[in-house]
C-alpha cells in the first residue's frame, strides 16, 4: 500500500480553515437589509404573509413551492435567498457548505396551526401540508434543496440569539474539515413578530468572525 492515496485526502478541502464574515442579511418588521444596506422597506402594517408575498414577487424568484411553505420556512428561505444571491458559491463549494441555524420558538408557530386542525373531534381534519412543517429545520431543508447545498446542517433552539455558540460551532466544522463555509444565523417567528439574521462565514470574508462582530451585525440589522 506504499504510495497509495488515503481516501480522506481525495476530498477537496480548502487549506485555510480561518473563517471571516463574507455577507449577511436580515429580515424584520417589513424591512430587508443586506450587508448593511436596506434593500426593501415596506408598510409595517402588512401581515408577514403579505410581506413575504410582496418580496417573492419583487425579487422574481419563480419558485412556486414558496407559497406552500409555512411562515418560518418562508422567513428562512427569503433571508437565505437574498443573502446567497449576493455571493458566488460554486456547486463544488456547496458540497462543503454547512448550515447552522437557530431560534427561540422552534416550529411552535406551525405547531399551533396544526393543533388547531385536530382540536375538535367533530372537526378533525389534520392537514398533511401543515404537518410536514412541524419541525424547525424544515425551512433549512428548503434552502438546501433550492441551492443544492450538501454540507452538514443543524438547527439549535436557544432562549436568545447566541453569537458565541454560532461562532464556535462554525469554526469547529471548519477546523474538523466538515465544511469550508458555513451559513449561520437566527430565524424566529411567533405571534408577536419575526426577525431573521443570517450570515455567511467563509475564508473569502473580510469582517472578523468574532462574537463582537456577529453581535454588532445582528443588533444593527
Amino acid at each position: 500500500m506504499v504510495g497509495a492515496t488515503p481516501l480522506y485526502s481525495l476530498k477537496k478541502f480548502h487549506v485555510s480553515t480561518k473563517l471571516n464574515i463574507q455577507a449577511w442579511c436580515s429580515v424584520k418588521n417589513g424591512t430587508v437589509s443586506c450587508n448593511g444596506k436596506k434593500i426593501v422597506s415596506t408598510d409595517n402594517e402588512q401581515t408577514f404573509s403579505e410581506f413575504a408575498k410582496q418580496i417573492y414577487k419583487e425579487q422574481q424568484w419563480e419558485y412556486p413551492k414558496f407559497y406552500k411553505m409555512d411562515r418560518l420556512s418562508k422567513l428562512t428561505f427569503m433571508t437565505a435567498e437574498i443573502l446567497l444571491n449576493e455571493v458566488t458559491i460554486s456547486s463544488e463549494e456547496k458540497e462543503q457548505l454547512a448550515v447552522v441555524f437557530s431560534n427561540k420558538s422552534a416550529s411552535l408557530d406551525t405547531d399551533r396551526n396544526y393543533q388547531n386542525s385536530i382540536n375538535s373531534i367533530e372537526n378533525f381534519y389534520p392537514s398533511p401540508a401543515v404537518f410536514v412543517y412541524t419541525l424547525p429545520n424544515i425551512g433549512m431543508g428548503e434552502v438546501c434543496i433550492r441551492h443544492k447545498i450538501q454540507g452538514e446542517n443543524a438547527f439549535f433552539v436557544f432562549d436568545d440569539f447566541n453569537p458565541l455558540f454560532l461562532k464556535q460551532y462554525a469554526e469547529s466544522l471548519a477546523q474538523n474539515n466538515k465544511a469550508t463555509q458555513v451559513l449561520c444565523g437566527w430565524t424566529e417567528i411567533d405571534e408577536k413578530g419575526y426577525k431573521s439574521f443570517l450570515y455567511l462565514a467563509s475564508p473569502n470574508g473580510t469582517l472578523p468572525h468574532t462574537e463582537e462582530t456577529i453581535t454588532k451585525l445582528y443588533t444593527q440589522s
Binding site: Y125, P126, S127, P128, A129, V132
Partner: peptide, 9 residues
C-alpha cells in the same frame, strides 16, 4: 404526494 394527501382531506 403531499398535495395528494391534502386533496384526500
Amino acid at each position: 404526494s403531499i398535495d395528494a394527501l391534502e386533496l384526500i382531506v
